[in-house]
């Protein structure tokens, strides 16, 4: 099949750009640990309240792990537990969350903490809270009439 010389150059250029993009995100994901939230743990959605760690929502200091704190959220239409939490600046935190009913989102606005909560699955994301401020948590997957009222708050301070 005949292809114009300039089109070949263009496609090689385009392909090279795509390979650079893929390499950048591939290295970032698999060598620097920036994989998107993909936890494989399951949970019975009807027994969330009795199952650890969801029986104690909120921020907990942990020892002997790669992270300093675990921040546990339980979502249900149309609220998160806890409704407000304070995280010390610079803390490395594993956010752990699940839903008791329909699919919800858990997005900490203005950060990379953005994950789907699906019944039966635990969602996790580990990050270091290295910027001070008040962060709004919003449900970003439609969950019913009160979807836009579903929120929580994280305060990051020294």
């Amino acid at each position: 099949m005949h292809m114009h010389k300039l089109e070949k150059i263009w496609l090689i250029f385009g392909l090279a750009a795509l390979i650079v993009f893929l390499s950048t995100i591939g290295v970032s994901a698999f060598y620097l640990g920036n994989k998107p939230p993909s936890c494989l743990t399951t949970v019975d959605p009807e027994k969330v309240d009795q199952t650890a760690p969801f029986n104690k929502p909120g921020l907990h200091k942990v020892e002997g792990k790669d992270w300093d704190y675990e921040l546990v959220f339980v979502a249900q239409a149309f609220a998160y537990t806890p409704t407000q939490v304070t995280v010390p600046l610079g803390a490395k935190v594993k956010v752990i969350a699940t839903t008791k009913d329909v699919v919800h989102g858990l997005e900490v606005a203005g950060t990379n903490i953005n994950m789907m909560l699906e019944p039966g699955y635990v969602s996790e994301y580990t990050t270091t809270f290295d910027k001070e401020g008040e962060y709004l948590i919003v449900c970003n997957e439609y969950c019913g009439t009160g979807h836009h009222l579903m929120s929580s708050k994280i305060e990051v301070k020294k």
Partner: peptide, 12 residues
């Protein structure tokens, strides 16, 4: 991409 239950390698 941000869903639980799917291996990150298969996502990639």
């Amino acid at each position: 991409l941000t869903e639980p239950g799917i291996d990150p390698a298969w996502k990639f």
